[in-house]
Amino acid sequence: MAVLPIRIMGDPVLHSPASPVEAISDEIRELVADMFETMDAAPGVGLAAPQVGVPLRIFTYSYPDDDGNPWRGVIINPALWMRPAEPGEPDPDEESEGCLSFPGERFPLRRSEEVLVTGIGLDGEPVRIQVDGWRARIMQHEFDHLDGVLYVDRLGDGDWKTVQKIVRKRGWGRPGEAWTPGIDDLEA
Rank of each mutant, 00 (worst) to 15 (best):
P20G: 06
V131A: 12
R137S: 12
L186I: 01
V52R: 03
G182S: 08
G44Q: 05
N77Y: 05
G73E: 09
A188N: 11
L56I: 08
A178H: 14
L150R: 00
G173E: 11
F102C: 02
L116F: 04
V149H: 00
D132N: 14
F36Q: 06
L80K: 09
G44D: 04
H145Y: 05
G133M: 02
A79F: 09
W81A: 14
P92W: 11
P55D: 06
E89R: 12
D123R: 01
V149Q: 01
F102S: 00
K165D: 13
R170N: 14
D132S: 15
Y151F: 15
A23V: 09
A136F: 06
I8Y: 03
D159N: 10
L14P: 02
E125S: 11
G46V: 00
I129H: 08
P17H: 09
L100N: 02
G156S: 11
D123S: 12
I6M: 11
R106A: 10
D91P: 00
G156V: 01
R137T: 13
M9K: 07
L56V: 14
D157G: 01
E142Q: 05
V152G: 03
D66L: 13
V13M: 11
F143E: 07
G182F: 12
E89G: 00
G173I: 10
V74Y: 06
A2Y: 11
I129V: 15
P103K: 01
H145R: 04
D26L: 11
D184G: 08
P20D: 10
W134M: 13
V3M: 05
